[in-house]
Design a protein around this nucleic acid. Structure first.
Lengths: 193, 193
DNA sequence: CGCCGAGTTGAACTGAATCAAGAAACGTGG
DNA sequence: CCACGTTTCTTGATTCAGTTCAACTCGGCG
C-alpha cells in the first residue's frame, strides 16, 4: 500500500527503514468515489493527501461561474491546499476526485511531528515544494506572455501521457481559456497536419 | 551586516547562535550598481542572493520584445533562479538591479552544506519556498481568471508600500499587461474618485 | 536649453470570450 | 441491449478587453 509513497520519498532523499515505518503509522487510507470532494471552499484543510490511485483537480469558482484549475494530482503526487493546511484557515479551493481515488491522508499535527522527528522528511517536502514552485513559476510566465495556442502546445509537450484521462473542458480550465477556444485551436492544429 | 538575514531566519525558525555564526561564514557580500545584472539568460546561477538593500527584478525577454517580470526582490527577500541554482543548468531569466543593491551571495555548494549541517536552515528554506509557492499559486489563479483592472487592484492592496519605488511600465510587465493598458486603468480609477 | 525616457491619450485592430445551436459520446435505468 | 437524458465537444456569429502603433506631454538632467 505504501510502495508509491516510498518510491516518491526515495527518489528525493534517503530514509532509514525505521523512519519510513514510523511515517507509515501517521497516514490514514481513504477512498473517494468519482466527483466526491476531498476539500470544499470555506472548509479547513485538515489533511493533505498522497495519491495512490486516481486523479483529482483543485480549483476555485469565480464570479462568472468559471472553474479555473490550479492543479491536477495523479498517482504519485500530492493533493492539498498548502495555505489552508499550514495555517488551518478556511480554503479558497475545491479539491474533487475526477476518478475513483485511493489516498493516504496525513493530518497537520502528524505532519508537523513527522518533520520534527525525521529531518529526511523535512527535506523531502522541501524538494517537493521546490519542484512545485519551479513548475508554477513557469506556468505563470507562460500564462502572462503566451497565446492560447502556445500554452496548449507546451502542455502537450510537457505532459504527453496524462492528458488522455482529462476531459477537454478541464484542460481548458487549466490553461485559463474557454472550452470553445481550445476546441478551435485543436481544430486548426489538426487541419494543418 | 547580517541583521536583516538574522531577522528573516528568526521569524521562521529558531537557530542557535553558533549555527548562525557558521552560516555567516558562507556568505559573500556583493554590491551592484543600478542596471547591473546579477544573472543573465544562458548563464548558470552559481549563487543565490539575500537582498540587504535595494531592489531587483527577475524577468525573461519574449519574442515580441516584452519583458514579463516573474518577481521583484527587495530588502529582506531572496533573489535567484531556483531552477538554475539547484540544477546548475543555464537560466532562462535575467536578474537586474533596479537600484543600487547590497547583496549577500551564497554558492550552491555552501548552500548544500548549510542545509546538511544545520537542519534549522533546511526548515527555513522550506518555509521560504512554501510561502513563495502559495503566493505564486495565487498570482497564477489571478492571472488566469481576472481582468487587468482586478489584477492591478489586488496588487496595490497586497503591496501598498512597495509600488512607489517601481516604475509603472515594470508594474505592467509584472501584471502581464502593456504600459498603455495600465495607464488607462489608472486613469479610469482616479476619475471615478 | 535641449534631449531622452516615462507616462498619457487616441484610433484601429485582433485574439479570445460570449452566446447560441447542433452533433457526438456516455452512462443509467428500464 | 436499447432508449433517453446528460454531458462534452464542435462550429458559427458577434462582442469586447486589451494590444498595437503613433503622436504628444511632462519632468529630470546633461
Amino acid at each position: 500500500m505504501f510502495e508509491l509513497l516510498l518510491q516518491s520519498v526515495k527518489e528525493k532523499v534517503s530514509v532509514k527503514a525505521d523512519e519510513f515505518e514510523f511515517a507509515k503509522t501517521l497516514f490514514i487510507p481513504k477512498k473517494l468515489r468519482k466527483r466526491q470532494y476531498l476539500l470544499q471552499e470555506g472548509d479547513v484543510s485538515k489533511y493533505t493527501a498522497f495519491v495512490e490511485k486516481g486523479m483529482l483537480r483543485m480549483f476555485t469558482v469565480d464570479e462568472k461561474g468559471n472553474e479555473p484549475i490550479l492543479q491536477f494530482s495523479m498517482e504519485g503526487w500530492w493533493a492539498g491546499d498548502l495555505y489552508s493546511f499550514l495555517t488551518q484557515e478556511p480554503s479558497q479551493y475545491h479539491i474533487e476526485a475526477m476518478e475513483v481515488c485511493e489516498l493516504l491522508l496525513i493530518s497537520k499535527s502528524s505532519w508537523d511531528m513527522l518533520l520534527d522527528k525525521v529531518p529526511a522528511f523535512e527535506r523531502y517536502f522541501r524538494i517537493l515544494i521546490q519542484n512545485s514552485l519551479i513548475a508554477t513559476q513557469r506556468r505563470l510566465m507562460s500564462s502572462m506572455s503566451e497565446s492560447a495556442e502556445e500554452k496548449y502546445t507546451k502542455l502537450i509537450n510537457n505532459f504527453p501521457g496524462c492528458l488522455q484521462r482529462i476531459p477537454q473542458h478541464m484542460i481548458a480550465s487549466y490553461l485559463g481559456i474557454t472550452p470553445e477556444t481550445l476546441s478551435r485551436i485543436r481544430g486548426q492544429m489538426s487541419e494543418r497536419k
